[in-house]
Simulated scan of single mutants.
Amino acid sequence: MELRIFTEPQQGATYDALLAVARRAEETGFGAFFRSDHYLMMGSVSGEPGPTDAWTTLAGLARDTRSIRLGTLMTAATFRLPGPLAITVAQVDQMSGGRVELGIGTGWYDAEHSAYGIPFPALKERFDRLDEQLAVITGLWRTPPGETFAFTGRHYQVSDSPALPKPVQQPHPPILLGGMGAKRTPQLTARYADEFNLPFVSIDDTVTQFGRVRAACQEIGRSPDELTWSNALVLCCGKDDAEVARRAAAIGRDADELRENGLAGTPAEVVDKLGRYASVGSQRVYLQVLDLADLDHLDLVAAEVLPQL
Rank of each mutant, 00 (worst) to 15 (best):
V100I: 15
D64A: 09
V45W: 01
T52N: 07
A86V: 06
Q133M: 13
E132W: 10
G117Y: 11
G98A: 06
S96Q: 06
M74I: 15
P84F: 06
L70S: 06
E147P: 04
D53H: 07
L70N: 06
T106A: 13
V136L: 02
H113G: 11
T106K: 13
T65C: 08
I137K: 01
S114N: 08
A150Q: 10
T148S: 13
P145W: 04
D110L: 07
R142Y: 07
E112P: 04
E132Q: 04
G139L: 05
W55P: 04
A135W: 00
G83C: 09
K166A: 08
E48W: 05
A163D: 00
Q133T: 11
L140K: 05
M95I: 14
A90I: 01
I104P: 03
H155F: 15
D53P: 05
Q157K: 13
Y116W: 13
S114Q: 14
Y156S: 04
G103F: 10
R66H: 12
E48C: 09
G43F: 01
I137R: 00
L140P: 01
P167Y: 07
Y156I: 15
P145K: 14
V158L: 14
P162C: 15
A86G: 05
R69H: 10
L140R: 02
T65L: 06
R66F: 05
L130A: 04
L102I: 12
T72M: 11
L40T: 10
M74F: 15
M42G: 04
A135R: 08
A76Y: 08
V92T: 03
T152G: 12
R63D: 10
L73D: 02
F149N: 02
H155M: 05
E132R: 05
L134D: 01
A163N: 07
A90D: 08
I118Q: 04
L140Q: 03
R69L: 11
S46C: 08
L61A: 05
Y109E: 02
L140M: 15
